[in-house]
Design a protein around this nucleic acid. Structure first.
Lengths: 207, 207
DNA sequence: GTCTATACGCCGATAGAC
DNA sequence: GTCTATCGGCGTATAGAC
């Protein structure tokens, strides 16, 4: 339990080898301008390559860059969730850890959270599996199911509980990322966690 | 108060004159495939035009179509909000009416709500004013400010209250639109309204 | 294996025939 | 004023020189 949860290395930033340099550049651009308005030329400039051709030494085409990015981020999210589930099987603690992670990421790697939020609705990434169909999503859904079964979460459609809970979380993060909420994510963490959790907690008198 | 609120004619569907036929086709395609993956050819087919050129008789370019659509939808939303504010100045009733409207729209004109949700984050509509900067948004923000001043809403950052409230609403609508929640929006209205309102209500014991 | 130069397709936009 | 035919540009992708 005191085994700390580091900011996950969603993308290795240490000794940025070439492919990661490209991915970081792409992530930043996609998060800022979107996939379709980002050209390969933009990416190669941002990654300090001499020309577009260099991209093709590492990725077969543009979609592959986006898709690799998508996989990196979702795989790491998935791993983080596995870690969390391994550490405790109490839904309240699992959800708390996930929220902690997301808020921490918002401060430390805002592009990644932006990418996640965009991937939620978007025309981003031609025909990719949406956020809603990723393994990470399914695992989180199971947390809600489990919480309802054990009585920690009140007895409503688990999908609805999830909608409420992450509606609060993701919308708050979104306003932070767009600057409508002007403090760091960390400043809103405690309050927002309480709002989201109390809303779905069994013993809560919200209902 | 019993002055009924019709589904607003966001886009006149009655005797669909040409420009509206085009807008409806575009709305549907943009909501489904996104702006950038929708070609003028797609739009002209969907609108049953004989050729792309016909589009140019009504709109100067592709962006104009998207922008007109954006204006129609946001202007109508804005008008609806004005109506609501004129009918009552009690924030709880105003917010309830807005939520009613959004859920009704989700059942009656899902593309419009989809468009609104997409416009929230998106790379949609090159460089347009985001949802967050529209007059409609500002007016809703004032409802929260007012509610806090009169004591109906508890005393937190109004932007945060808004984030929580509409996080629940919009995330729920999103899951309905994507089919993850499989009933009609109307079936979730009462419960979701309660969740969202109780969360920010002053007398609520959620906190 | 690095980069320049170029090919190719798609799509937005237009011109001009009827 | 309706439609066909075409242009031009951008952006992806490749070939080929060094």
């Amino acid at each position: 339990m005191d085994q700390e949860l580091d900011t996950p290395q969603i993308i290795s930033e240490k000794k940025a080898e070439m492919p990661d340099k490209i991915l970081l550049a792409a992530l930043s651009l996609f998060a800022k301008k979107g996939y379709f308005t980002t050209s390969l030329s933009d990416i190669s400039s941002a990654a300090n390559l001499t020309s577009i051709s260099e991209l093709y030494q590492h990725y077969p085409d543009k979609r592959a860059i986006a898709y690799t990015l998508y996989e990196h981020i979702f795989d790491n999210l998935n791993v983080s969730i596995d870690d969390i589930r391994r550490r405790t099987d109490k839904p309240s603690e699992q959800l708390r850890s996930i929220v902690d992670l997301l808020f921490k990421l918002t401060d430390d790697a805002p592009h990644i959270v932006n990418f996640l939020l965009i991937a939620k609705t978007n025309e981003f990434l031609p025909e990719q599996k949406a956020l809603l169909d990723s393994p990470a999503f399914t695992k989180i859904y199971k947390i809600f199911q489990h919480g309802i079964k054990t009585g920690e979460i009140r007895n409503i459609d688990p999908m609805l509980a999830m909608a409420y809970f992450f509606g609060i979380i993701s919308n708050t993060l979104h306003l932070i990322l767009t600057g409508k909420l002007d403090k760091k994510a960390d400043a809103y963490l405690a309050q927002t966690w309480l709002a989201a959790w109390n809303l779905i907690e069994k013993k809560s008198s919200c209902f």
